[in-house]
């Protein structure tokens, strides 16, 4: 990338300060396009996979009768959590903040809460 850090990039860079976060990516929920990443990209996840996964979950939940929009998805393995958050946006197609979290280093409930709060302000 270029020398300058854009507002979006700075926004994602700041998320690396959130406890346990190893990598983040801002992904288009429809097209899977990755707009920016910070930290360990592999930890954040592949854009098209992330969007496909989120869409699948949202549809299954919707079809099962769940009301409202999908807010977050947490996938847990022995070593790490992978999290998808909906990012608030005044208009336009939905966005997903994908993040990898190191399980060993952090209290998950707090980490998720902290990251979730910050996710809603990524575009601010």
């Amino acid at each position: 990338m270029g020398e300058m850090t854009t507002a979006l990039q700075a926004s994602l860079d700041r998320l690396l300060d959130s406890p346990g976060v190893t990598g983040v990516a801002l992904v288009d929920a429809v097209t899977g396009l990755t707009y920016a990443t910070a930290g360990d990209i592999a930890e954040a996840g592949d854009g098209p996979e992330v969007s496909e996964f989120a869409t699948l979950i949202a549809e299954r939940l919707g079809a099962a009768g769940a009301d409202g929009e999908l807010e977050s998805v947490v996938t847990t393995t022995t070593k790490r959590h992978h999290v998808l958050f909906s990012v608030a946006r005044p208009g336009g197609d939905p966005l997903i903040l994908a993040a990898g979290l190191d399980r060993d280093r952090v209290n998950m409930a707090l980490a998720l809460r902290s990251l979730g709060d910050r996710a809603s302000e990524v575009l601010a």
Binding site: T6, A7, L8, S11, L26, D28, T31, L33, Y35, R89, P90, G92, D93, L95, V122, L123, A124
Partner: peptide
């Protein structure tokens, strides 16, 4: 509009 949001809109449009 926010800078980050505008970035997303412009980038999406290019692709």
């Amino acid at each position: 509009i926010g800078a980050a949001e505008l970035e997303v809109v412009c980038t999406a449009a290019v692709f």
